[in-house]
Design a protein around this nucleic acid. Structure first.
Lengths: 228, 228
DNA sequence: GCCAATCAAGCTGTCGACAGTCGTCAATCG
DNA sequence: CGATTGACGACTGTCGACAGCTTGATTGGC
């Protein structure tokens, strides 16, 4: 979802499915940290603020729960997911698991047009990285990794990554409040392209291991830094 | 859902809300193929049949959609997920991805008690396999693989597997209508234990690749057989 | 006889309302 | 003065109802 950052809640609600609109609004609000991690969300109040009834709010909240952005407690309601260090490590470990698999599937049989599409996305990413728009850089970065996974040709794998991506946004935006990512991150994607182009399995594995390790360390250090 | 073996008092007290009960009913009905794949489910009729209102039915349906048992089309409603050969391959490919990762994490550092717990579960599985209760055999088989993943210590990985497990049940029950699994399947889990006990990474990888390959081929052949 | 426009039935999307439950806070008891 | 209990308020779980859409059949035209 390209961030159509809207300040007033009711302006966000227009024509589409109310559930989707509320889900988008909530997703955006959580990613932008307008709701604090661990904060309790009142269905009634949200419904009032958005000018809709509770039914769409409830369904949207369930949707976000399945995406890991909210957690629910029976008879108590929904709370904004608060990630601890362990969960953060788990998320990046699963990401590694998925991307390794995609890289391996691609290692032997990466079509020229697939490689070209990935290369194009890296260029878009580099351009976004220089633009200073941090949220756009994050989306283009995720878009590259999504394309990488999609290229492996397993739609179920892609769905799993999409689910995880919501949590990744949660991780990443936790830290971009404090510091921006260096431009070298965008550049480093070229290493992945080179590994894929070489077609060598072990090299692909090393490349993705390194890449995600750097991303994880960057986030972990950012979190620790924000705590001090 | 493992039979609610209640350990803590609070688990006794918790009254299950209607959404969970409806979700359990629908899950069971889909797994047992009382609803045909692709069949449209009417919220009104389900609510009538179950003696509840549409709200819990809708929420339960959304839950099952996130688990891949139902698919929804806007303004049209929910349909029982119908798997084609490609989706089936994708599901087993993702399963391989997850279990490989768990095996790798375990390969070097598998504690004796972890190995013992896995060994115990294999024994339970073998016993269930001889009992003739096919659905119990399936559940114990899944329980072993769940334990394997859980032993890797990544809760997010486990959640992903649990999601996938619902679709695996859908795959497996598609074929057990026609033929039962041979007892050798239960026995074959010993190969995984031996590989883990050896602590050799490559051997672990080969073992899980072989194991899941056999399971996939068994299901694929079962589907093809049922079509003829 | 075939195609298109129309219409009725059933369905989903959404809403407001009620009842039971949980958390809070003050009053009471030890 | 601290702990317990009771009542109050707010919230979730659930319900029935209405409006608009989808669908399939019916009817009219060519």
């Amino acid at each position: 979802m390209p961030a159509s950052s809207v300040a007033t809640p009711s302006a966000f609600i227009q024509q589409r499915n109310l559930v989707e609109q509320v889900a988008d609004y909530l997703t955006q609000a959580i990613i932008e940290q307008r709701f604090a991690p661990g904060e309790r969300l009142s269905e009634v109040q949200l419904a009032r603020d958005l000018g809709v009834s509770r039914a769409p709010v409830r369904e949207a909240a369930r949707l976000l729960e399945s995406r890991g952005l909210l957690v629910s407690q029976p008879r108590r309601g929904f709370f904004v997911r608060a990630l601890d260090a362990g969960e953060l490590a788990d998320i990046f470990d699963l990401r590694l698991c998925l991307e390794r698999h995609a890289m391996e599937r691609l290692a032997g049989a990466c079509l020229p047009e697939t490689l070209a599409a990935l290369r194009r996305q890296v260029e878009i990413l580099c351009e976004a990285s220089g633009s200073g728009d941090e949220s756009r850089r994050i989306e283009e970065d995720l878009a590259f990794h999504r394309l990488l996974i999609a290229s492996a040709g397993n739609r179920r794998l892609l769905r799993t990554f999409d689910d995880l991506a919501h949590e990744l946004r949660l991780c990443i935006t936790l830290i971009t409040k404090t510091h921006e990512a260096p431009e070298s991150i965008a550049e480093s994607h070229h290493l992945l392209l080179d590994a894929l182009a070489s077609g060598e399995g072990p090299r692909c594995r090393e490349a993705i291991d390194y890449h995600i390790g750097v991303a994880r360390d960057y986030v972990v250090r950012g979190i620790d830094g924000a705590r001090e």
